[in-house]
Amino acid sequence: MSSLMLTLRESMRYRGRSGHWSWLAHRISGLAILGFLVIHVWDTANAFFYPEVYQWSLAVFKHPFFGLGEIGIMAAVLYHAFNGIRITLLDFKPEWWKYQQKSATIVWVLFFVIFIPIALLMFSNIISHCSELAAEGASCWTIPRLSDFLQ
């Protein structure tokens, strides 16, 4: 078994404590942020190289699927930031190791307290965008066609 498969499978199976789950969440959120950055660099580069494609991508990003993705990215950025600070502090202050479990809990609490209102706000924006389009007789679920944006 390759070490990649072993790591992926056993990271889920290993019964570590709070630090293990924090590490897993940190990795997943880091990958999500990386995925977002790849899309972000691609669409921003289009603003210079292919302005029509850029306009089309902006329209696509208003789709509820991307709206939910943005909420996910917000979650990833918040958790990654808070947990990153926790790990950095524990690395610079080894004597604080005894607060490892407490600090992991604090990070989760801080994350949810800040994320939940932001997620509600972002979700209400998706709803209002869809309602506006519905009032005009259109659907927010329709994926814009690239051909409509090309001259």
Partner: peptide, 17 residues
């Protein structure tokens, strides 16, 4: 990666991390 699995697994309770 400061996961603390080592500290929790140590049967001698060494503060590994």
């Amino acid at each position: 990666r400061t996961v603390f699995n080592c500290t929790n697994a140590c049967p001698r309770e060494i503060e590994v991390t």
